[in-house]
């Protein structure tokens, strides 16, 4: 039973869920993800593991409510049960001792860098986290990131908190100032990951990104998540999701993410039509 034990409404339609999934929690490693399904005939969606607790048998997920499935998930409450949670999937993040890590999380990508930064911290690596949001009130996980980072740098689009600009603005000045770093990790929207890759390339800093293409089974069976990395066709679900940012074909990834955009729109419009009021939404049958 994949029961939601806790649900918190954070900012910018981002929700945090603590879900009972002992089999997943027991094996979870930083950088891995799960695939979940809300109800029968629902779609399978991949979500990166933000945290887990082996003793309690729980996992923590951050989900932004943007499509039909994620909106419906945002209407579920503590005590509700998901039809399926499968994982952990994907190859765990590559973590080497004796490195200084700079991790960039854009928006709810912060949830995805969280376990990786912690894993670096746990083996004694120096960790610098750069986290960003549109505005101060929408900043996610600042306290959680402070707890596992030697240094946290902040960027907001409107300058209401920390540096005005993007997380890449902060990284750029760090690179220009020749601040020591061995590995850069960036997780967030594709444009952000691409910008990071472009920045670090000329400085020759090893850079890792965790890719988020469309997936279905998550076990290498369908090939929907295929990405090109250094001229090699890779399946993000079993060969990744973490790849060398300097080798990734981001244009292809961006195009392929739009594969079902027309259908996603149809689905959401139909949903909004059927569940026009909040009340209808709350009584929707899973």
């Amino acid at each position: 039973m994949f029961r939601i034990l806790e649900k918190n409404d954070l900012a910018a339609k981002v929700y945090r869920y603590i879900i009972e999934a002992p089999d997943v929690a027991r094996k979870a490693k930083a950088g891995q993800f799960v695939i979940l399904r809300l109800y029968d005939d629902g779609e399978r969606i991949p979500i990166t593991l933000a945290d887990w607790n082996v003793a309690k048998g729980t996992i923590t997920l951050y989900v932004q409510a943007i499509g039909k499935t994620t909106i419906m998930m945002s209407m579920m409450k503590a005590g509700d049960v998901l039809a399926d949670v499968v994982g952990p999937l994907g190859i765990p993040s590559h973590i080497e001792k004796g490195k200084t890590l700079v991790a960039l999380g854009g928006g709810f990508g912060i949830a995805a860098i969280h376990p990786i930064v912690r894993a670096h911290k746990l083996i004694g690596n120096k960790t610098i986290s750069i986290i960003g949001a549109r505005t101060k009130g929408l900043m996610l996980m600042e306290n959680e990131m402070r707890a596992i980072s030697d240094d946290v740098r902040i960027a907001t689009d409107d300058g209401s908190y920390g540096t005005k600009g993007f997380v890449t603005t902060v990284l750029k000045s760090m690179l220009e100032n020749r601040e020591p770093m061995d590995v850069v990790l960036a997780i967030g929207p594709v444009v952000m990951m691409k910008a990071v890759a472009d920045l670090t390339r000329s400085y020759g800093v090893q850079t890792l990104v965790s890719l988020n293409p469309i997936m279905m089974d998550g076990t290498g069976m369908c090939g929907a998540c295929r990405v090109v990395v250094g001229d090699k066709l890779q399946f993000a679900c079993v060969d990744g999701p973490e790849f060398d940012a300097h080798q990734v074909d981001f244009e292809l990834l961006m195009a392929r993410q739009k594969m079902y955009s027309p259908q996603e729109k149809i689905s959401l419009e139909l949903f909004n039509k059927i569940c026009a009021t909040q009340e209808q939404r709350e009584t929707a049958v899973w």
């Binding site: 005939d41 629902g42 779609e43 039909k68 499935t69 279905m216 079902y260 149809i266 689905s267």
Partner: peptide, 10 residues
Amino acid sequence: EFPNSADTPV
């Protein structure tokens, strides 16, 4: 059965 009773796009 998309988009009516099934959510996965084809």
